[in-house]
C-alpha cells in the first residue's frame, strides 16, 4: 500500500476522535473531584483545626516571628548566598582555567559538594571543624558558620551555573574585547561576566529560594534564642504550646518570601525569552 492509499478520513465507526478526546477529558475531571471529596470526607477537620489553627497561639507569635525568626532566616540566606556567589565565581573561573590542576580541583569540589546532603555539611561545620582546629573560631559565631555551610553547598551549584553562563556568551565577544586591547582578565570582568550574569539571573534567584529553605538546617548547629530562624522558632513554640499552629505560621512565612521570588524568576525568564526573539 502506498502513502496515497491511506485514507485520511476513515469510515465512521463508533466514536469520532473528537468525541473520544472529550470523553477522556471528562473522565479526568471526575477523578479529580472524587479525590478531593474523598480527602475532605476522610480528614478529621475538627482535630486538624485544633492542632493547626489556634488563633490566639498564632497571634502571640507576632511580632517575634517576623522581627526575629524571619529576619534571621533572611540574614542566614543572604550571607550564605554572598559566600556561595563569591566562592562559586572563583570555582567557575577555575573550571574554565587553562591550568589543568585548577580545573580538576574545581571539578572535585563540585562533585563532592553537590553529592552531599546539606545537613551533613552543617554537622561537619558544627562538629568536625572545631575538633580539627581547636581554638579557632569561625568569625561571626553562628552567623559565620551558617554563611560558610550554606555558602559551601551553594557554591557548587552556582559554580556550574556561572560556568554555563560564561560559556553562553558568544565567542565573538571575547575576540572583540581582545582585539581592542583588553587583557584576558579585564575582558572577563568588563565584558563577559556582566553578560553572563544577565543570562543566569533566573537560575541564581532559584538558588536563593533553595538556600532560603536550607537555612532551616541551622537547627543542627545549636543556636541561642536570639539566633533562631523560622523552623527552629516554630518548632520550639510548637513544643511549649503543645500545639502545631506555630509550624503552620512558620510555613506561611516561608511562602511569603518564596512565592514572590518564584514569580520574579518567571518574569525574568519570560523577559529573557523576549530579548532572544
Amino acid at each position: 500500500m502506498t502513502a496515497a492509499d491511506v485514507p485520511i478520513q476513515p469510515k465512521k465507526k463508533g466514536l469520532t476522535r473528537r468525541q473520544k478526546r472529550r470523553l477522556s477529558r471528562g473522565a479526568q475531571y471526575v477523578v479529580f473531584v472524587a479525590a478531593v471529596i474523598a480527602f475532605a470526607v476522610s480528614a478529621d477537620w475538627g482535630r486538624l483545626k485544633n492542632q493547626f489553627a489556634q488563633w490566639d497561639i498564632a497571634r502571640q507569635m507576632f511580632p517575634d516571628v517576623i522581627t526575629l525568626a524571619l529576619k534571621n532566616t533572611v540574614l542566614y540566606t543572604v550571607s550564605g548566598f554572598a559566600v556561595g556567589l563569591a566562592l562559586g565565581m572563583l570555582i567557575a573561573l577555575m573550571r574554565l582555567s587553562s591550568v589543568g590542576p585548577y580545573r580538576w580541583l574545581a571539578g572535585i569540589y563540585i562533585e563532592i559538594f553537590r553529592g552531599l546532603p546539606a545537613l551533613l555539611i552543617f554537622i561537619f561545620i558544627g562538629v568536625a571543624v572545631p575538633l580539627a582546629f581547636p581554638g579557632t573560631e569561625i568569625v561571626g559565631g553562628t552567623y559565620g558558620k551558617v554563611a560558610l555551610a550554606l555558602g559551601l553547598v551553594a557554591a557548587a551549584y552556582m559554580a556550574e551555573t556561572i560556568r554555563a553562563g560564561i560559556q553562553a556568551v558568544p565567542k565573538g565577544q571575547m575576540e572583540a574585547a581582545r582585539s581592542l586591547g583588553f587583557s584576558p582578565a579585564r575582558a572577563m570582568v568588563s565584558i563577559i561576566v556582566p553578560q553572563a550574569f544577565r543570562i543566569i539571573l533566573p537560575p541564581l534567584t532559584n538558588e536563593l529560594v533553595l538556600l532560603f529553605k536550607d537555612s532551616s538546617l541551622v537547627l543542627f548547629l545549636g543556636v541561642t534564642l536570639e539566633e533562631r530562624e523560622l523552623s527552629k522558632y516554630g518548632r520550639d513554640l510548637a513544643s511549649t504550646t503543645a500545639n502545631s499552629t506555630p509550624i503552620l505560621v512558620a510555613g506561611l512565612c516561608y511562602l511569603l518570601v518564596t512565592i514572590p521570588l518564584g514569580f520574579v524568576v518567571r518574569r525574568m525568564e519570560a523577559k529573557a525569552q523576549e530579548a532572544v526573539r
Partner: peptide
C-alpha cells in the same frame, strides 16, 4: 600583545558589539 592590538583596529563580520 595587548599593547600591539591597541594600534590595530578590527571589524568583524558579526559586528560583535557589546549588547549590554
Amino acid at each position: 600583545i595587548d599593547a600591539v592590538r591597541r594600534r590595530i583596529g578590527m571589524v568583524f563580520q558579526q559586528f560583535n558589539l557589546f549588547p549590554h
